[in-house]
C-alpha cells in the first residue's frame, strides 16, 4: 500500500482553480519531486497534504486512512513533516531552540511539570536537546546550534527548517524548494543530506525548480501545470515528455 495517496485533490481560491483533480501515490522510501511553473499549485498542494489548507475536493490518504483536512498539528503527530518555501524560522530563538520546537509532538510535559520543573520535564528537556542536536547533525548544522536563527545565511535557513522538521520524526518529509538560493556546492551537499535522510527511512516529496537537482535525486517526478497533473514518471521519461517540455522544461533545461 502506498504511504501517501492523493485522490482528486482540488483547491479553489475564489474564482481561481489552484489545484484540479490531482492524484498520485507516494511509496515508502521514495524520493518524489513535484515540479511545475510558478503558480502551478505546488505549494498549495503541500498545504493541502499537511492540513494547512482544507482541499475543496478530493481525499488525502495516509496508509489508506482518510486524513483529509486533519489539523496541521495532528498531521505532524502522524509523521508528516514539512519545510516552507519562504522560511518561517523562529527568528528570535537560537538555532537549537528552533529545532527543539520540533520535539513538541514527541514530548508531553504539561503546564504543571513545566511550572514546577518536575523530574519528568527535566528528563524530557535533556532528551529534546539531544534529539535536536541529532537533527542538526543530520543536516550538518551542529556548529550553528547556539547562534540566533536570524543570523543564518539563506542556504542554511532551509537546512534549519529541515532539521526542525526532522526533529518531529517524520515518516514523510515535504521540502518546498530546498535548493533555492544555494550555489552548486551547497546544492550538492543538500542532495547528499536528502539521500541520507531517505536511506534512514524517510519518504520524501520535494518541490524544486533546479532541474539538475530534481533529475539527479528523484525516483519519480510529478509535473503540475495550472493546477493539473500533466505528467508523472521516472526522470528520464519526464525529460522526454512533449507536453512537459512545452509547459515547462524547454526553457529551463536549455
Amino acid at each position: 500500500m502506498a504511504l501517501l495517496t492523493l485522490e482528486g485533490v482540488s483547491m479553489r481560491f475564489g474564482g481561481l482553480d489552484a489545484l484540479q483533480d490531482v492524484g498520485f501515490h507516494l511509496h515508502e522510501q521514495q524520493i518524489k519531486a513535484l515540479i511545475g511553473p510558478n503558480g502551478a499549485g505546488k505549494t498549495t498542494l503541500f498545504n493541502c497534504i499537511t492540513g494547512a489548507l482544507r482541499p475543496t475536493a478530493g481525499r488525502v490518504l495516509l496508509e489508506g486512512r482518510d486524513v483529509t483536512a486533519w489539523p496541521a498539528h495532528r498531521m505532524c503527530h502522524e509523521g508528516v513533516g514539512r519545510t516552507f518555501q519562504h522560511s518561517r524560522l523562529f527568528d528570535d530563538m537560537s538555532v537549537l531552540e528552533n529545532v527543539m520546537v520540533g520535539r513538541h509532538a514527541r514530548t508531553s510535559a504539561g503546564l504543571l511539570s513545566a511550572f514546577l520543573r518536575l523530574p519528568r520535564h527535566r528528563r524530557e528537556e535533556a532528551e529534546s536537546r539531544q534529539a535536536a542536536m541529532d537533527a542538526l547533525w543530520r543536516v550538518d548544522l551542529v556548529d550553528r546550534a547556539d547562534q540566533p536563527a536570524s543570523s543564518l545565511p539563506l542556504g542554511e535557513r532551509h537546512l534549519l527548517e529541515m532539521a526542525r522538521a526532522l526533529a518531529t520524526e517524520p515518516r514523510i518529509l515535504l521540502l518546498d524548494e530546498p535548493a533555492a538560493g544555494l550555489n552548486d556546492e551547497e546544492t550538492e551537499r543538500l542532495a547528499t543530506s536528502v539521500r541520507r535522510i531517505r536511506d534512514e527511512g524517510v519518504t520524501i516529496l520535494l518541490v524544486e525548480h533546479d532541474m539538475g537537482f530534481v533529475m539527479d535525486i528523484s525516483d519519480e517526478v510529478v509535473v503540475l501545470d495550472y493546477g493539473r497533473k500533466i505528467a508523472e514518471g521516472p526522470p528520464l521519461m519526464i525529460q522526454a515528455d512533449e507536453e512537459v517540455i512545452r509547459a515547462y522544461l524547454g526553457e529551463e533545461l536549455e
Binding site: G51, M100, A109
Partner: peptide, 28 residues
Amino acid sequence: NLTNSRLGRALQALRRSEVAAQSLGVDT
C-alpha cells in the same frame, strides 16, 4: 520556569508563525 520549557517554546514559536508551529505539532 514556563518560558524555559516545552510549552514556553511552543508559545514563542506560535507568536512568530502559527503555521510553522502547527507544522511542528503545536496545537496553537
